[in-house]
């Protein structure tokens, strides 16, 4: 555990240093996110001026939360897949594999650092966006964070499965882009209340976030437990799949190639 903490600190140092060093990219990323939200909100406002203020706020609220959910999912998946392919391209992947902590945990720590550093940006975007559009709605940030955790963990699990494919097939960016549509599908599936779809990764986590934050529903603690356990199960499965892919790549001698 202490070795994991030491590594986490190392990842945090590097992530922060790169964020500061390449500040233009960081700021541009934030502006990008902000403009995307603002333009969509202004679009809704301009095309449906007759919409009552209450309805408008609800749709903006849904959109903002939906976008936040999509960003969290994207952060979980892409930070793992892009790190695996980038490490293979630059040649450091083999050094990461040699870590006694295990390459899976190295990529998990890196994804966690990415989330910590970028969630501040995501969270700051919501009030900035509301200010610009002059449409206010209440967001319970504590609930948002609490229900985002299992969502992010489940996304990391999918990220590890895709990372495993990257380890073996190397160039998988187009496939990863294709997966975005699958994620959109998972996000809108009616997996709450409990049904067969609730066993899918990401889907119940995204559905519950929507119910809690937009529809202001109260979720039972059993559901909370289910969400956390289900995402932990998928994370363990994702890590196991990644480890198997690593062993396969070692057997074939294709670990460091890209």
């Amino acid at each position: 555990m202490s070795a994991c903490l030491i590594l986490f600190r190392g990842e945090l140092n590097c992530g922060y240093a790169l964020m500061r060093r390449y500040w233009l990219d960081t700021v541009a990323g934030m502006i990008n996110l902000l403009l995307f939200l603002v333009f969509i909100q202004l679009g809704i406002y301009s095309f449906q001026p007759e919409m009552s203020n209450k309805l408008l706020v609800i749709s903006l609220e849904k959109l903002t939360i939906g976008f936040f959910v999509f960003s969290i999912i994207g952060a979980g998946i892409s930070s793992i897949t892009s790190n695996v392919s980038e490490s293979a391209m630059t040649g450091v992947l083999e050094q990461l594999i040699l870590s006694p902590i295990g390459s899976g945990w190295v990529f998990f720590c890196r994804a966690l650092v990415h989330l910590i550093l970028s969630s501040g940006i995501y969270l700051a975007t919501i009030p900035i966006c509301m200010t610009i559009c002059r449409h206010w709605f209440r967001v319970d940030f504590c609930k948002l964070l609490f229900f985002s955790i299992p969502l992010w963990i489940a996304s990391c699990a999918v990220g590890f499965a895709l990372g495993a494919l990257t380890l073996i097939y190397k160039k998988t960016q187009s496939f990863t882009n294709l997966i975005q549509f699958l994620i959109l599908g998972l996000m809108v599936l009616p997996s709450y209340p409990f049904n067969a779809l609730s066993w899918l990764p990401i889907s119940p986590q995204a559905a519950v976030l929507n119910k809690v934050l937009v529809e202001k529903q109260v979720i039972s603690w059993n559901w909370v437990l289910f969400l956390y356990l289900q995402s932990a199960f998928y994370l363990a499965t994702g890590l196991a799949v990644f480890k198997e892919a690593e062993n396969y790549a070692k057997q074939k001698g294709i670990l460091g190639q890209y």
């Binding site: 030491i6 140092n13 050094q95």
Partner: peptide, 10 residues
């Protein structure tokens, strides 16, 4: 510094 941390060195 990062490589040392990658190997769990304090």
């Amino acid at each position: 510094d990062y490589y040392c941390r990658l190997h769990g060195l304090r």
